[in-house]
């Protein structure tokens, strides 16, 4: 079990309010990702749930129990840190066993659980090594192992992959998702990388300046962003925004159109532009096109669409996929 409910959770550091008051329900077994730019309060929110920071006001409930004032260890949660936070003087075995030793579990049970965790995480051959003798990915697995053995009601991940290289990040992303499938335990995952959020989450919580901008499934956020911030943050490359006169035909002060929802042609179209930079990725080509009266737009073309700097192209936005926003930046539906 691991249902977590935040009610009006507020956090201030001195006079600075970091989290102005958040209400959020995380269902048991859900994989929830907190995503947002640096300094948006996502890590603070996670630390509040973990108990590593005290809430200034509001309550946190885990499985119906108010844990707002409970010590971190009493909340039944396990956390994986960005820096792995392994104990450098202990072997991998002792690192994984540490929370069990603290809970005074019998040595036989500890041995069994550590062996099992090591097997699941492919660490069996490294049990006697120190963290300093392991690679980044292995260290991260040890940190996850240390979290698994406690059988927590929820896992908290604080940007666990940001210290890894791109290839390893992809692999670990899969491993964590698989782990979630196996364990079916609630996971809260903090990241600033929207790709991680989109690929892993059941539910994404988009944060900005301590406020929740939108909560929803990855495709909900992609298809129906509530506001300009979410629209710009979710999706890669980011959504194009067109303002003023050019947005007039759609009866909105601002419209948004994703790079993949613009048709490209060399002959005719709604907007005419000059190709600036063309990024050829093989499968796709991203064109940065300078459109008269609008400015720079990013467009996704097929990998075989050959253009180069200075060529003239025509763009036609897909009417059905245009997002309209009012003066306050809210979605107008």
């Amino acid at each position: 079990m691991g249902k977590i409910i935040l009610k009006k959770v507020n956090k201030s550091f001195g006079a600075t309010q970091v989290i102005p008051g958040i209400d959020l329900t995380i269902e048991d077994g859900e994989f929830v990702v907190f995503v947002g730019p640096s300094g948006c309060g996502k890590s603070t929110l996670l630390r509040l749930i973990a108990g590593l920071e005290d809430t200034s006001s509001g309550t946190i409930e885990i499985d119906g129990k108010d844990v707002t004032a409970a010590a971190p260890a009493k909340r039944g949660l396990a956390m994986v840190f960005q820096s792995y936070a392994l104990y450098p003087h202990m072997s991998v075995r002792n690192n994984i066993a540490f929370p069990l030793k603290m809970a005074k579990v019998s040595p036989d049970v500890i041995e069994k659980k550590v062996t099992e965790a090591a097997r699941v995480l492919n660490l069996t051959n490294y049990l006697e090594r120190r963290p300093g003798q392991l690679s980044g990915g292995q260290r991260q697995r040890v940190a996850i192992g240390r979290a698994i053995v406690r059988e927590p009601s929820a896992f908290l991940f604080d940007e666990p992959l940001s210290n890894l290289d791109a290839a390893l990040r992809g692999t670990m992303r899969l491993e964590i998702s698989e782990l979630h499938q196996q364990l079916k335990t609630t996971m809260i995952y903090v990241t600033h990388d929207q790709v991680e959020a989109m690929t892993m989450a059941d539910k994404i919580v988009v944060l900005n300046a301590g406020n929740i901008e939108q909560v929803g499934s990855p495709l909900d956020l992609y298809n129906k962003p509530d506001n300009l911030f979410v629209a710009g943050f979710i999706g890669s490359p980011r959504m194009n925004f067109v303002k003023g006169e050019a947005a007039g035909p759609w009866h909105a002060p601002t419209i948004g159109i994703r790079p993949e929802h613009i048709r490209l042609s060399k002959e005719s179209g709604t907007w005419k532009g000059i190709v600036g930079v063309a990024e050829h990725l093989g499968s796709d080509t991203f064109l940065h096109v300078n459109v008269e009266g609008i400015g720079m737009l990013t467009v996704r073309a097929g990998g075989d669409f050959i253009v180069s700097h200075g060529d003239t192209v025509f763009l036609t936005p897909d009417d059905a996929r245009i997002h309209r926003f009012d003066e306050n930046g809210k979605a107008a539906r």
């Binding site: 960005q82 936070a85 540490f98 603290m102 809970a103």
Partner: peptide, 18 residues
């Protein structure tokens, strides 16, 4: 000594003495 290690110990159920 990184502060996160002390926090990890706290999450792992270590009291002040431990």
């Amino acid at each position: 000594i990184p502060g996160e290690i002390l926090e990890a110990a706290r999450m792992d159920g270590a009291g002040l003495l431990q």
